[in-house]
């Protein structure tokens, strides 16, 4: 039944497959060694569909996502433990790979071997010249101070800070991500950013504890309009604000009844 054309095609397919399997057999062997080459191989398989082979964030999947993948070529990272405008630490990058980012397409790769995760970090650092720029170092890591207790008084003070610092202009008076500036918020690349609905726990990307919210107020989100407040707010005010923001998606959801018209 099989024709000569079919036989020829089958033989060609088998040869192609054999060559492919041979090439994979000669690839890295899965040891515990951390290396850029290994990171590149893992990146090519697990990260490239979104972040692109060259790391510019325009992988084949990126066009169909509302939250765009990070452009590693820019060396600008939102979620860090370092001061505003600085590069992330290796641990910051590893933490994102390991934990993922909620409410985005970035999953947790906690099941990936730790050597592979570290190797991907090493490879990502080769995608931007910023990481090899000696003037970027040493990195100034933000220290998390002693937390202000999570109390009703602190939450109430945090609400005042929220209103006075105009957080509502993006996040809304009711913190539902619907402030008057929300439709026009963009990142440095011009991609629209939807301000987080702080009352939805499931919408919050990283700030899922008061400590992590405090860290965001301290570091800012590089490449976005979200600034660092270390020079503007006292440490206590940042903790109060963190407690208030945390409360919005947990327990009290304190709201003082102020309307947008009261703010103008």
């Amino acid at each position: 039944m099989t024709t000569n054309i079919q036989k020829t095609t089958l033989v060609t397919m088998i040869i192609f497959l054999t060559v492919g399997l041979y090439s994979c057999a000669t690839s890295y062997n899965g040891s515990d060694e951390v290396s850029v080459a290994r990171g590149q191989a893992v990146y090519h398989e697990a990260c490239a569909p979104c972040h692109g082979d060259n790391g510019d964030g325009s992988g084949p999947v990126s066009v169909s996502l509302t939250t765009k993948p990070r452009d590693f070529n820019l060396g600008v990272f939102k979620f860090r433990s370092t001061a505003s405008g600085e590069l992330p630490t290796d641990y910051d990058l590893l933490r994102i790979i390991n934990s993922g980012i909620y409410h985005t397409a970035m999953p947790s790769f906690a099941q990936m071997s730790i050597a592979d995760q570290y190797s991907v970090v090493e490879y990502i650092k080769t995608l931007s010249p910023a990481f090899s720029d000696s003037t970027q170092y040493p990195l100034d890591t933000v220290k998390i101070s002693t937390p202000v207790p999570y109390t009703y008084d602190s939450i109430e003070r945090g609400r005042e800070v929220y209103l006075n610092m105009h957080c509502w202009s993006c996040h809304g008076i009711t913190a539902e991500g619907n402030g008057p500036s929300a439709p026009t918020v963009t990142d440095d690349q011009g991609n629209h950013i939807q301000p987080t609905n702080l009352t939805h726990f499931w919408d919050i990307k990283v700030g899922r504890t008061p400590e992590k919210v405090y860290l965001i107020f301290s570091t800012g989100l590089n490449g976005t309009p979200m600034p660092s407040y270390t020079q503007i707010l006292t440490d206590k005010q940042r903790w109060d604000l963190a407690n208030y923001v945390y409360s919005l998606s947990h327990t009290s959801r304190y709201y003082d009844g102020k309307q947008l018209s009261d703010m103008k």
Partner: peptide, 21 residues
């Protein structure tokens, strides 16, 4: 995995490149 369906689907049920992997 705490991600949107569009992680693996261009539009469900069409798989994207990541979804096939």
């Amino acid at each position: 995995y705490h991600v949107s369906c569009f992680r693996c689907h261009t539009v469900p049920p069409v798989l994207n490149d990541f979804g096939r992997r």
